Deep mutational scan, measured.
Amino acid sequence: EMEYEEITLERGNSGLGFSIAGGTDNPHIGDDPSIFITKIIPGGAAAQDGRLRVNDSILFVNEVDVREVTHSAAVEALKEAGSIVRLYVMRRKP
């Protein structure tokens, strides 16, 4: 069973403070093209906020749908998102 969360982060000097993997051209798990959080960087915006978790998958960055995009398109969406970034994420319920 999945749960969904909308997380708004303010981009810090060091960016959003997380790493991603995945994409249609580089699936992270099997042939699932989802964009997954692979690392939360200590002291970064995501770590300070505390809600984003490793293995969360990002569905939307602001209004941009990143469910079926290449890795570089997801990176671009995050880069272009401005200083306030709304992430709509999905994760397995614990």
Rank of each mutant, 00 (worst) to 15 (best):
residue 1 E to M: 02
residue 1 E to I: 03
residue 1 E to P: 01
residue 1 E to V: 02
residue 2 M to D: 06
residue 3 E to K: 13
residue 3 E to H: 03
residue 3 E to Q: 03
residue 3 E to A: 06
residue 3 E to F: 15
residue 3 E to R: 03
residue 4 Y to W: 03
residue 4 Y to M: 09
residue 4 Y to D: 05
residue 4 Y to V: 01
residue 5 E to K: 14
residue 5 E to W: 05
residue 5 E to V: 15
residue 5 E to M: 15
residue 5 E to L: 14
residue 5 E to A: 10
residue 5 E to H: 13
residue 6 E to H: 10
residue 6 E to L: 01
residue 6 E to C: 02
residue 6 E to F: 02
residue 7 I to Q: 00
residue 7 I to M: 10
residue 8 T to C: 11
residue 8 T to L: 08
residue 8 T to A: 03
residue 8 T to G: 04
residue 8 T to P: 03
residue 9 L to M: 10
residue 9 L to C: 03
residue 9 L to F: 10
residue 9 L to N: 01
residue 9 L to I: 15
residue 10 E to Y: 05
residue 10 E to N: 08
residue 10 E to T: 11
residue 10 E to K: 04
residue 10 E to V: 06
residue 10 E to P: 10
residue 11 R to T: 08
residue 11 R to M: 04
residue 11 R to P: 08
residue 11 R to E: 06
residue 12 G to Q: 08
residue 12 G to P: 14
residue 12 G to F: 09
residue 13 N to G: 11
residue 13 N to E: 10
residue 13 N to S: 10
residue 13 N to V: 06
residue 13 N to F: 04
residue 13 N to K: 06
residue 14 S to F: 04
residue 14 S to A: 11
residue 14 S to W: 13
residue 14 S to V: 15
residue 15 G to A: 11
residue 15 G to Q: 14
residue 16 L to E: 15
residue 16 L to P: 04
residue 16 L to M: 04
residue 16 L to Q: 04
residue 17 G to R: 09
residue 17 G to M: 13
residue 17 G to T: 01
residue 17 G to A: 05
residue 17 G to E: 05
residue 18 F to V: 04
residue 18 F to S: 00
residue 18 F to W: 02
residue 18 F to Q: 00
residue 18 F to Y: 06
residue 20 I to F: 08
residue 20 I to Y: 06
residue 20 I to P: 02
residue 20 I to R: 00
residue 20 I to L: 14
residue 20 I to D: 00
residue 20 I to H: 06
residue 21 A to R: 04
residue 21 A to E: 12
residue 21 A to K: 07
residue 21 A to T: 09
residue 21 A to D: 12
residue 22 G to R: 06
residue 22 G to M: 04
residue 22 G to V: 03
residue 22 G to H: 10
residue 22 G to E: 08
residue 22 G to C: 03
residue 23 G to N: 05
residue 23 G to R: 10
residue 23 G to V: 05
residue 23 G to P: 08
residue 23 G to I: 06
residue 24 T to I: 06
residue 24 T to M: 09
residue 24 T to K: 04
residue 24 T to E: 13
residue 25 D to G: 07
residue 25 D to C: 09
residue 25 D to W: 09
residue 26 N to I: 13
residue 26 N to H: 10
residue 26 N to L: 11
residue 27 P to L: 05
residue 27 P to D: 07
residue 27 P to F: 11
residue 27 P to C: 11
residue 27 P to W: 03
residue 27 P to A: 06
residue 28 H to K: 08
residue 28 H to D: 08
residue 28 H to I: 15
residue 28 H to Y: 04
residue 29 I to K: 09
residue 29 I to H: 12
residue 30 G to Y: 14
residue 30 G to C: 11
residue 30 G to P: 12
residue 32 D to P: 10
residue 32 D to T: 13
residue 32 D to L: 08
residue 33 P to I: 10
residue 33 P to S: 05
residue 33 P to K: 11
residue 34 S to M: 14
residue 34 S to F: 07
residue 35 I to C: 09
residue 35 I to N: 04
residue 36 F to T: 10
residue 36 F to K: 09
residue 36 F to N: 15
residue 36 F to S: 11
residue 37 I to G: 00
residue 37 I to L: 13
residue 37 I to H: 00
residue 38 T to F: 15
residue 38 T to G: 05
residue 38 T to V: 07
residue 38 T to A: 05
residue 38 T to D: 05
residue 39 K to R: 13
residue 39 K to S: 09
residue 39 K to E: 03
residue 39 K to L: 10
residue 40 I to N: 15
residue 41 I to T: 08
residue 41 I to F: 07
residue 41 I to N: 13
residue 41 I to V: 04
residue 41 I to Q: 09
residue 42 P to R: 08
residue 42 P to V: 12
residue 42 P to N: 15
residue 42 P to M: 06
residue 42 P to L: 12
residue 42 P to T: 13
residue 43 G to I: 13
residue 43 G to F: 12
residue 44 G to P: 01
residue 44 G to C: 01
residue 44 G to Y: 12
residue 44 G to Q: 02
residue 44 G to F: 15
residue 45 A to L: 13
residue 46 A to C: 10
residue 46 A to W: 02
residue 46 A to D: 01
residue 46 A to L: 04
residue 47 A to Y: 14
residue 47 A to L: 13
residue 47 A to V: 09
residue 47 A to M: 07
residue 48 Q to K: 09
residue 48 Q to N: 12
residue 49 D to E: 05
residue 49 D to K: 14
residue 49 D to V: 02
residue 49 D to Y: 03
residue 50 G to T: 11
residue 50 G to A: 08
residue 50 G to D: 09
residue 51 R to H: 06
residue 51 R to D: 06
residue 51 R to N: 03
residue 52 L to P: 05
residue 52 L to G: 03
residue 52 L to A: 07
residue 52 L to V: 08
residue 53 R to W: 03
residue 53 R to A: 06
residue 53 R to Y: 02
residue 54 V to S: 13
residue 54 V to M: 14
residue 54 V to Q: 06
residue 55 N to V: 13
residue 55 N to A: 14
residue 56 D to F: 01
residue 56 D to M: 12
residue 57 S to F: 07
residue 57 S to E: 14
residue 57 S to P: 10
residue 57 S to C: 13
residue 57 S to D: 06
residue 57 S to Q: 11
residue 57 S to M: 12
residue 57 S to W: 03
residue 58 I to Y: 00
residue 58 I to K: 00
residue 58 I to T: 01
residue 58 I to G: 00
residue 59 L to S: 14
residue 59 L to F: 10
residue 59 L to W: 10
residue 59 L to I: 07
residue 59 L to P: 01
residue 59 L to Q: 11
residue 60 F to E: 11
residue 60 F to A: 12
residue 60 F to D: 15
residue 60 F to V: 12
residue 61 V to H: 00
residue 61 V to G: 00
residue 61 V to C: 06
residue 61 V to A: 11
residue 61 V to T: 08
residue 62 N to C: 10
residue 62 N to I: 00
residue 63 E to T: 10
residue 63 E to A: 09
residue 63 E to I: 09
residue 63 E to S: 10
residue 64 V to D: 06
residue 64 V to E: 13
residue 64 V to C: 13
residue 64 V to L: 09
residue 64 V to S: 11
residue 65 D to T: 12
residue 65 D to R: 09
residue 65 D to C: 12
residue 65 D to H: 14
residue 65 D to A: 15
residue 66 V to N: 03
residue 66 V to P: 00
residue 66 V to Q: 02
residue 66 V to D: 00
residue 66 V to A: 11
residue 67 R to H: 15
residue 67 R to E: 13
residue 67 R to F: 03
residue 68 E to R: 06
residue 68 E to V: 06
residue 68 E to M: 13
residue 68 E to A: 12
residue 69 V to I: 07
residue 69 V to H: 15
residue 69 V to P: 14
residue 69 V to E: 15
residue 69 V to T: 05
residue 70 T to R: 08
residue 70 T to S: 10
residue 70 T to E: 09
residue 71 H to G: 13
residue 71 H to N: 15
residue 72 S to N: 05
residue 72 S to D: 02
residue 72 S to P: 08
residue 73 A to S: 10
residue 73 A to V: 09
residue 73 A to K: 09
residue 73 A to Y: 10
residue 74 A to V: 12
residue 74 A to C: 09
residue 74 A to D: 00
residue 74 A to T: 14
residue 75 V to Y: 06
residue 76 E to M: 12
residue 77 A to W: 10
residue 77 A to I: 07
residue 78 L to F: 02
residue 78 L to T: 07
residue 78 L to W: 01
residue 79 K to F: 01
residue 79 K to C: 01
residue 79 K to P: 01
residue 79 K to S: 01
residue 79 K to M: 01
residue 79 K to I: 01
residue 80 E to K: 04
residue 80 E to F: 03
residue 81 A to H: 03
residue 81 A to K: 09
residue 81 A to R: 12
residue 81 A to V: 09
residue 82 G to I: 04
residue 82 G to E: 08
residue 82 G to H: 09
residue 82 G to C: 08
residue 83 S to V: 09
residue 83 S to T: 07
residue 83 S to D: 13
residue 83 S to F: 06
residue 84 I to Y: 14
residue 84 I to C: 11
residue 84 I to V: 04
residue 84 I to D: 12
residue 84 I to Q: 14
residue 84 I to T: 10
residue 85 V to E: 00
residue 85 V to A: 13
residue 86 R to C: 13
residue 86 R to F: 11
residue 86 R to L: 07
residue 86 R to N: 07
residue 86 R to I: 15
residue 87 L to S: 00
residue 87 L to Y: 01
residue 87 L to Q: 00
residue 88 Y to H: 06
residue 88 Y to N: 15
residue 88 Y to L: 02
residue 88 Y to S: 11
residue 89 V to C: 03
residue 89 V to H: 00
residue 89 V to E: 00
residue 90 M to S: 06
residue 91 R to I: 10
residue 91 R to E: 04
residue 91 R to N: 11
residue 92 R to S: 14
residue 92 R to V: 07
residue 92 R to C: 04
residue 92 R to L: 05
residue 92 R to N: 14
residue 92 R to W: 09
residue 92 R to T: 03
residue 92 R to P: 08
residue 93 K to R: 02
residue 93 K to H: 02
residue 93 K to P: 04
residue 93 K to V: 03
residue 93 K to Y: 01
residue 93 K to M: 11
residue 93 K to W: 02
residue 94 P to M: 02
residue 94 P to Q: 04
residue 94 P to N: 13
residue 94 P to C: 02
residue 94 P to I: 03
residue 94 P to A: 05
